[in-house]
Design a binder for these strands. Structure first.
Lengths: 163, 163
DNA sequence: AACATAAATGATATATTATAACATTACAAG
DNA sequence: CTTGTAATGTTATAATATATCATTTATGTT
């Protein structure tokens, strides 16, 4: 499956203890402001997603939780992940049934992703896209859009170069 | 779950033996042209999706197949559905883990959907959208998009009116 | 601080979705 | 007609996700 421990943001390498810490602080601050409980469990799950920096299935998260001695049954992972997704700290990649930490924690945005089918790296697009072609059809039919999922499958630069 | 037998295209009712027949003919013609085998099983699965005219899970399809006496194990349904999706006769709705017949069989298009979270009705957008905000990010990073998934969750007109 | 209430977590069980692997049949090309 | 390929049948199991109920932890109120 994915490229073991490539630790890439986007498709390039980078040092990243920093962005992890920043993201955790941001989540903490947000939860403080909104009276949400940023519990040790939820924090740990977010740390796991940030640490791995790629899309992780719920059971992969669960394994890492277990290693950390923090809960070991599926609902534990799913509940924490739901919390993170609900509040925008993480996103679910529907095509992969997997979860990634949000790469744009400060910006209000409709998530959009590029998923490499070779290495499974997931990159969150930088544009705060929210109005697509859909909006025309939507307003025509009276459909009220609440949330959009935009995922592009393809091949990333480094995988293309290898071939 | 979904609205039993609402049989709606988009969110409005319509007579629809016609569009079923048309879609089947179109698929048949396409398969002829491309040397694909439009087998009784594949035809039946497409008929099921067209008939129901909403997103059906693989196991729902399988139940209907079974009723029709045409195969009864999961791989049978999944294989036929894969074929239909691969050749554009149907689409997978990732958010629902479900499948719908393509509503725009003649037009080359990136599918885009609106999904009502109350009645699960799925409408395929009419615009042949294929270039979104993603394309900028994609070209910047050298990512080559092969396929996009665009799904909007929300509430359809009739469900909104009920409330 | 003591209590009531709500929120989160723990734990068990099970539902739902999907695929691997191998056997068999159908069908087309040489 | 036999050989290769694609499709289907069949069994088993993997991977993903949730329902339910018990317990603990946090929060707000007196």
């Amino acid at each position: 499956m994915a490229s073991e421990t490539s630790k890439s943001v986007g498709f390039e390498k980078h040092d990243h203890g920093l962005c992890l810490e920043k993201a955790i602080k941001a989540a903490e601050a947000y939860c403080d402001r909104c009276n949400l409980q940023f519990t040790p469990l939820r924090r740990k799950v977010l740390e796991i997603l940030l640490e791995e920096h790629r899309a992780l299935g719920a059971y992969a998260v669960l394994d890492l939780l277990r290693e950390a001695g923090l809960g070991s049954q599926p609902p534990v992972a799913y509940r924490a992940l739901s919390f993170l997704v609900e509040h925008g700290f993480a996103h679910k990649i529907e095509r992969l049934n997997a979860f990634v930490a949000c790469a744009l924690p400060d910006i209000l945005h409709s998530p959009a992703f590029m998923i490499c089918r070779k290495c499974d790296t997931v990159v969150e697009a930088q544009s705060p896209s929210s109005s697509f072609d859909l909006s025309a059809t939507a307003s025509a039919t009276g459909f009220e859009i609440e949330q959009t999922t935009l995922e592009a499958k393809g091949v990333c630069n480094s995988c293309a170069e290898m071939a």
